[in-house]
């Protein structure tokens, strides 16, 4: 699939938007989406990773291991960030959505 033809789902777009300017790990991504949408959208931890893996496999995001904490019983955190391809795909997806929104605006007060 060509990265020039973005077909991001809403959830994928949300995920990528959250990590656009920050490196976050899974739980932070889930929490950020919940906070940003004031609880209207939640991505449970159980559903999050398969989506992240798919995005990573498509080259839209990248990840690296971080630190471990006591609460995690020694397991390390894995931090995600956007790749260059991911950034342009996200921009293109937004542009398409904006274009469709602008096109479907009511004309002449009908």
């Amino acid at each position: 699939m060509s990265p020039k033809q973005p077909d991001l789902s809403n959830t994928q777009e949300l995920l990528m938007s959250v990590i656009e300017f920050r490196q976050l790990y899974g739980l932070e991504i889930s929490d950020s989406i919940e906070k940003a949408t004031k609880g209207k959208r939640k991505i449970p931890v159980g559903s999050l990773y398969p989506i992240l893996k798919r995005l990573e496999a498509r080259g839209f995001i990248k990840s690296e291991w971080g630190e471990s904490t006591e609460a995690r019983e020694g397991a390390r955190r894995r931090y995600y960030s956007l790749t260059g391809t991911g950034r342009s795909v996200l921009a293109e997806t937004r542009a398409i959505r904006d274009a469709v929104n602008a096109y479907s605006q009511p004309v002449g007060g009908i």
């Binding site: 931890v45 471990s68 609460a71 955190r77």
Partner: peptide, 17 residues
């Protein structure tokens, strides 16, 4: 092993919280 460390680590963090 990678999935286990990442996913279960996050799960444990939520459980702790």
């Amino acid at each position: 092993p990678d999935e286990r460390e990442e996913w279960l680590g996050d799960l444990k963090e939520v459980q702790y919280r």
